[in-house]
């Protein structure tokens, strides 16, 4: 089990940040990802793995409208 934006999310095997974003349907192009407080560069989304127990924050940067 991992946390995504404070909520439980099932974890079955290591997956990349990009795979997690796809799984969650997070298509917004303008986001910030932090794993256990650590900022993840966008260039690393395809390779950075999310492990069991990780606390993932996916901030959609839209306070607009």
């Amino acid at each position: 089990m991992i946390k995504v934006n404070t909520e439980d999310h099932p974890w079955n095997k290591p997956l990349t940040v990009q795979e997690l974003l796809d799984e969650k349907g997070y298509i917004f192009p303008h986001i910030v990802v932090r794993i256990n407080g650590q900022y993840i560069e966008e260039d690393d989304y395809a390779t950075q793995l999310v492990q069991d127990g990780d606390d993932v924050l996916v901030l959609h940067l839209m306070a607009g409208g």
């Binding site: 934006n5 404070t6 909520e7 917004f28 924050l57 996916v58 901030l59 959609h60 940067l61 839209m62 306070a63 607009g64 409208g65």
Partner: peptide, 18 residues
Amino acid sequence: QHDEAWLIFMDQVNKQIP
């Protein structure tokens, strides 16, 4: 009107303001 505050992502998706 949405020109005062647009907080849907912060609240509903990011869960930043629980």
